[in-house]
Simulated scan of single mutants.
Amino acid sequence: MPYILKHYFDPDWDLTKLKPAEQVDGSVDHHEKHFVHSVEAGAVIAEWVELAEDANGQDERFVYDEKAFPAGRGTGIKHRHPDRLYAAKDGYVCYKDGKIVVRDTLILAKDIDYHTGNIDFIGNVVIDGSVRSGFSVRGRDLSVHGQIEGAEVKALQDLNCKGGIKGGHKAQVKSGRDMKLAFCENATLQSSRDILIKGALMHSDVYAGRRLAVGGRLTGGNISAYNYIYVGEQLGGGLDTDTSLVLGYHPSLLYVNRESNIRIKKLHDDIASFEKILNKDDEFQEEYKEKLESAKAELELIKSLKVQLWEGMYCTECLEECKVLVPGVVKPGVEISIGNAYYKVDDYLEDVFFYYDHEEVKIGASTKNIKR
């Protein structure tokens, strides 16, 4: 009896023939081309089905006289279900040299742009090119050999960008574990553990779950690290450049607090706009009265949540371990907060460290004997 091999993936998947996703209204989204389809370990990827005698229109390539899976690496069969082929690991499934294989690493020898669309993959992603502005990449471990531009990049575990980041004030880069960068300009960085930057860190917002180390200059931006910041060459850009460092609170909570402040400002603007319309125009009274009440209710809710957020942040205080180490130069204007202690640098300093002592930020004269 003939059998047909039923696929739970596209057996003709071809990286060179990607098409943009069609929307409900018939338009197409050139950012979404379904570059790769992820499968989880244990998912059924192919199955034998008996071929009916009167069956027409079946793909003859997948009609077999005997049930023998063209199984390759990353696939497996369960004794209880011998007619099904399973993914043995997380990854993507395709045909390779006539075999069905599952691969856990997606290697892209090109930029992430309109040719590829966004990438959302369950396994590791290696990008030989750059991630262009307006696109997004998501994976387990991410390695980018080129640059990250104004893109959204998220690694569930580690992220390594050898070409550095030129974010254009739009880049959002996040890692579930450690992050390593050649340099970073005008971006927002979030990491649950350490952020290591070989060169300069300039005009960026940073949230490091444990430590931040910058080999070159750290100039401008709002920098948060739980307990440790190291800057090799220069901290601050002078009085004309705002450089703020915050230590001692969990950075993920500080990020939520920042987002809450942005939303509160937007709500205040909306409320003022709605009240202005209601005072001038009777035609839209009902519509804008409802919008005004909704905005006020959301504002009160966010304020209430911020109180709870700060209560939680105080519980995460880790002040005695906090250090800012700068073997290079510290320029005037740098603001350093460790818990509720605050210090603003008003003169040039060299080869110093900052630490918390009795509700004050104090300065040590040399970094050479400090344990890192």
Rank of each mutant, 00 (worst) to 15 (best):
V307D: 15
L309G: 06
V324C: 10
L247F: 03
E321P: 01
T316L: 11
Y8E: 01
A71M: 08
D240I: 11
L292Y: 04
T105Y: 03
E335Q: 12
Y64F: 14
N261R: 10
N369F: 12
L196Y: 13
S294R: 12
E47H: 09
K110N: 10
Y86F: 15
H169R: 11
F121R: 07
L159Y: 01
D141P: 02
M1R: 13
V214E: 07
M179W: 01
G123A: 03
E290N: 07
D282S: 13
Y249I: 02
K19H: 08
G209T: 12
D270S: 10
I77Q: 01
D141K: 09
Y114W: 10
G139P: 05
P11K: 02
W310Q: 12
Y228P: 00
L196K: 08
G237P: 03
Y86I: 00
A365I: 12
S136Q: 14
N340G: 11
V246R: 15
I370L: 10
K266V: 07
Q157F: 10
K110Y: 07
Y249V: 04
E293L: 12
C318R: 10
H203A: 15
E300A: 15
S273E: 15
G134L: 02
L247E: 07
D104K: 13
G129M: 06
Y356D: 07
D281W: 03
D351Q: 07
A182I: 03
V36C: 03
Q285A: 15
D29R: 12
I119T: 04
Y92Q: 06
Y114E: 12
L253V: 06
Y228K: 09
L235N: 01
E360Y: 02
A213G: 07
N222F: 05
V137G: 04
K166W: 15
G168R: 11
K89G: 04
L156Y: 08
A171M: 05
I264R: 10
E321S: 13
T116H: 05
V231E: 08
A295I: 14
N261Q: 09
V330H: 05
A88H: 04
E300N: 11
P332C: 02
L319Q: 06
C94W: 01
T105M: 15
I127M: 04
L5A: 01
V307M: 13
H79R: 14
A341P: 06
K180T: 12
L5D: 04
I277S: 09
W310L: 05
H81E: 15
I338E: 10
I264G: 06
T219H: 00
E350M: 13
M1D: 14
K362W: 01
H115D: 14
K344H: 02
D54H: 08
G209Y: 05
I112F: 05
Q23D: 09
N186D: 12
H37T: 14
G146D: 09
G237N: 02
L301W: 09
F274R: 01
G123R: 04
A295V: 11
S224A: 12
L292V: 13
K306Y: 01
G216E: 12
K331H: 10
A87R: 04
D113F: 03
F183T: 05
